[in-house]
Computed example of a mutant assay.
Amino acid sequence: MKLICIDVGNTSIHYGLVESQSVNHTGHFPTSGLKDGVSPELAELLQPLAVEAEGISFCSVVPDINSNLVASLAGLGLSVFHLTHASCEGLALVYPKPSEIGQDRIANAIAAQAFHGVPAIVIDMGTAVTFDIVSSKGYEGGIIAPGLQVMTRYLHEQTALLPELKADDLIEVEGAIGKSTVHAMKLGVAVGFSGMIDALLQRVTNELQSRGEAAPVVLSTGGSIANLTKDWAAKSRFVQNLTLMGLAVAFQRNETA
C-alpha cells in the first residue's frame, strides 16, 4: 500500500510517498504556508503523489494548523488519518500523560517496533535531540536535549566575539586542543555533542538492561547524524525518513483494527 505521509514540524512540513520501508518523492513545505488558511500550493505539490497513493497519514507538532492542513488535502480525494496518542494501534503507551508525547515521536516508535524490533532506542537529531525508548512493555518515554543548531546558535548569540558555526564546519574536526577561537569552538561543539549523545545512550541502555531487557537496537535519524564523531556513529543504525515510515504503519494498523 502506497501512502502519502506528512510530518508537520515547527518550521517545515516533510512529506513523501511511502510503501513499507521504501520512501520516495520526498520534499519539504514551510509550515508557515498553512498559518493563514488553505494552501493550494501544498495540494499542488502532493497531487502527483496522490495519483499513486491510497491514503494520507500525518502527524503534527503544530496543532493550530491541523485543520488548514486537512482542508488543503481535501481536494486530493484520499482518506486522511491523523496519528495521535489515541490512534496509535499496536503500540502501548506506558507513559503517565500520553497526550504530551510528540506525534512524530510516536511515529518513530511505531517504525522501530514494526521494522527493527524491541527494545529499541530511537535518536532523532533535529533542532532538538530526542531519545525515544520502546521496550517489551511499549513506549516508555524518552529524553529531550539541545540539538546541534541550538548549541552553535546559542554560543554566537550569547557572546560578543564568537562567530556562528555552520553544520558543515563540524564534520571531521581534527585534534584535541583548539589552536584558534574557531577551532576551539568546533572541538567543543562537535566532540561535546557526540559525548552528550554517548552519555545519554549509555544511561538508557544501562537502565533497560538492569531491568532484564535484551540489548536494545539503536536507531538514529535526522540531519545532525553526520556531525557525530566516526566512532560514535558506528553505534547506531541510521534510518532516513523513519517518521514517515511509522506514519504509514500507523495508517495500515488503523485500517485493519
Rank of each mutant, 00 (worst) to 15 (best):
L242A: 10
L91Y: 02
G138Q: 15
S99W: 12
N206L: 11
I225H: 14
L148W: 13
L200H: 14
V61F: 11
E54Q: 13
I225N: 11
F131R: 08
A199G: 13
G147D: 10
Q252S: 07
T31F: 00
Q240P: 11
A199V: 11
Y139K: 01
G175N: 03
G102T: 01
A86K: 14
L17W: 09
F251Q: 04
D169T: 10
C88G: 02
V239W: 12
E100K: 03
N108C: 07
G141Q: 09
F58R: 05
I197Q: 05
N68H: 15
R253D: 10
V173M: 05
L42W: 02
F193Y: 15
G9S: 01
Q113R: 15
M196D: 14
M125Q: 07
L244W: 02
S32N: 02
Y154S: 13
H85I: 00
C59A: 10
A250R: 03
Q113V: 08
A92F: 00
A167F: 04
G223T: 00
I13T: 00
K230G: 02
A176L: 14
E89F: 01
L3C: 11
P63H: 12
E172V: 03
H156Q: 09
I101E: 00
C59E: 07
F115V: 04
S136V: 11
I177P: 00
P40G: 00
Q209Y: 09
A214P: 04
L3V: 10
V239A: 02
L201I: 00
A190V: 05
F29I: 06
G175Q: 05
A234N: 09
N254T: 01
M245H: 01
V218R: 04
L219Q: 13
G90V: 10
S87L: 08
V94L: 02
E52A: 13
G142I: 09
K235S: 09
L162Q: 03
G37K: 15
C88R: 02
L49N: 10
H85W: 07
V189L: 06
L242F: 14
P98F: 02
S135N: 03
Q113F: 06
V23T: 11
L45C: 13
E157W: 04
E54S: 11
A215S: 14
E41W: 01
S99N: 13
G90R: 06
S220Y: 10
T221Y: 06
D132G: 08
D198P: 00
D104G: 04
G27I: 06
I177M: 07
I6L: 04
S194M: 08
E213K: 09
V182K: 09
L69S: 01
P216A: 11
T181C: 00
L83M: 12
H156W: 08
A128D: 12
G27D: 01
V62D: 04
A109Y: 15
E207Y: 06
A250T: 06
A214V: 03
E255L: 08
V150N: 02
L49K: 13
L155R: 12
G27L: 03
A92K: 10
T31M: 00
T229M: 13
S60Y: 08
Y139T: 04
E213C: 09
V150C: 03
L46V: 14
A199Q: 13
